[in-house]
Simulated assay, not measured.
Amino acid sequence: MPTNERLNKLSAAGVSVWLDDLSRDRLESGNLAQLALTRSVVGVTTNPTIFAGALSKGTAYDAQIAQIAARGGDTADAIRELTTDDVRRACDVLREQYESSGHVDGRVSIEVDPTLAADTDGTVAQALDLWKTVDRPNLLIKIPATPAGVPAIARVIGEGVSVNVTLIFSVERYREVMDAYLSGLEAAADAGHDLASIHSVASFFVSRVDSEIDKRLDAVGTAEAKSLQGKAGLANARLAYAAFEEVFTDTNERWNALVGKGGTVQRPLWASTGVKNPDYPDTLYVTGLVAADTVNTMPEKTLEAFADHGEVEGDAVSGRGAESQEVFDALSGVGIDLADVFGLLEREGVQKFDVSWSELMDSVSAQLESAR
């Protein structure tokens, strides 16, 4: 089957299409390989919620869980083996995309245990262990952009490991993430690592920003406040892209020095792009965020919606920083505390992954017990 024309246009505009989902069923049925062929999918992101969902459905993992139980493995052993096996296989499925893109795409992400979000040393140790366990050059280790996560990012990159920075909500935190990336590359260069082999994306969450701010605008209740609904998510992402262009530019001496040593751009990745408000177009966070050197990781529902009726209307991001700042100024003007919004979203993001991790632990524990 030919590649979908709409998604092909999106790729041609500089947006790498990644799938925000992974399961053993996708791997064994050939679905992931088919999406790479027909839907321009050149990457995969995972998280604890995705794995909890995958392991709770069907029987695809039963045989491996029985093997782990038979040799006396515990819940932590099982989760580690099941998830790293899936990610390793997905890396192999996308190896062709990895090679053909010059090692830019064909990437698969696996996240460190979310209970380590406040533990810098623990995050670093697990990130390095996951990197060695999966043992694929097209792997990305996901580390949350929490206050403890940011220094961990720099240290892990300094060890020559590629990183997907997740749970970024504010431009302020994103600037810290970019600085951590540059610091990591500098440390990696000092340690003799090949900078060209180190890649990173910075996952900026979009729809959750609108969900929280729209709720607060409803509470304000004025016509001015309601006229701002559905605008914050795109404005926030566009401000992030403006910050990206400030850092990864020829005029930045620090970045230029790293480019000379083989350093690669840390691309913005638009995450949480499934539209949660049914009143908004279901491709809002794809069409509205088309720009070069970006990634859009989509749940399959959004991917298929764009394949069916999505439109690429040119670069929708570059040069819109001032316009986006006006949206933020207007939000502040009607009483929206943006710092509070972003702080809440970060805390909630970690908590949601904690809950999913607990569900994953409980599910696997029960399956191991049943197998025994």
Rank of each mutant, 00 (worst) to 15 (best):
G321D: 10
V265I: 13
A225Q: 02
L27S: 06
T46Q: 03
A307S: 12
D119M: 10
N164G: 11
A127T: 03
G53D: 11
D218H: 10
V206P: 00
D85I: 01
A223L: 12
E81C: 03
I79V: 10
A187G: 10
Q64D: 15
V350G: 07
R267H: 08
D190M: 12
D218C: 04
S101G: 12
A292H: 12
K142R: 06
D77F: 03
E176K: 13
D92G: 03
E212M: 12
Q34V: 12
T302Y: 02
G349K: 01
F205I: 05
E96A: 13
A366N: 13
E246P: 02
A187N: 08
A191N: 13
H309K: 15
A154C: 09
A90M: 07
L239R: 14
E176S: 15
D250L: 10
E111C: 04
E111W: 02
L82A: 08
G58S: 09
D190F: 08
A235H: 09
L182V: 15
D282G: 08
M298G: 00
E28P: 00
V275C: 01
V265C: 00
P147M: 07
D329P: 11
S272D: 08
F328Q: 12
V275F: 03
R88Q: 14
V334C: 12
I198F: 06
V163L: 06
D214E: 09
V41Y: 00
V134H: 01
I50H: 01
L27E: 06
L344W: 15
L35P: 00
A60P: 11
V42F: 05
Y181T: 09
G73I: 11
A371P: 05
F342K: 07
A271N: 04
P2Q: 14
L239S: 08
V161Q: 08
L27G: 02
M178E: 15
F205G: 01
G288P: 08
A232Y: 05
Y285A: 06
L27C: 08
I198W: 07
Q67F: 10
K352H: 10
T251V: 09
E246F: 02
R320T: 15
T3E: 14
G262N: 00
A180C: 14
S358M: 10
D86V: 04
A242V: 07
V15H: 02
N277S: 11
R372C: 04
E224N: 05
Q67P: 05
A339R: 12
E111M: 08
R39C: 07
W18N: 01
A54V: 03
Y241G: 03
E159A: 14
A225K: 00
A191R: 15
S200G: 14
T45Y: 01
T273M: 05
V201E: 07
A307Q: 08
L22K: 01
Y61H: 10
N47C: 07
R6K: 13
A291C: 12
L303P: 07
L55S: 03
G233C: 11
L55R: 01
Q325M: 13
R39I: 01
A52I: 04
P278H: 02
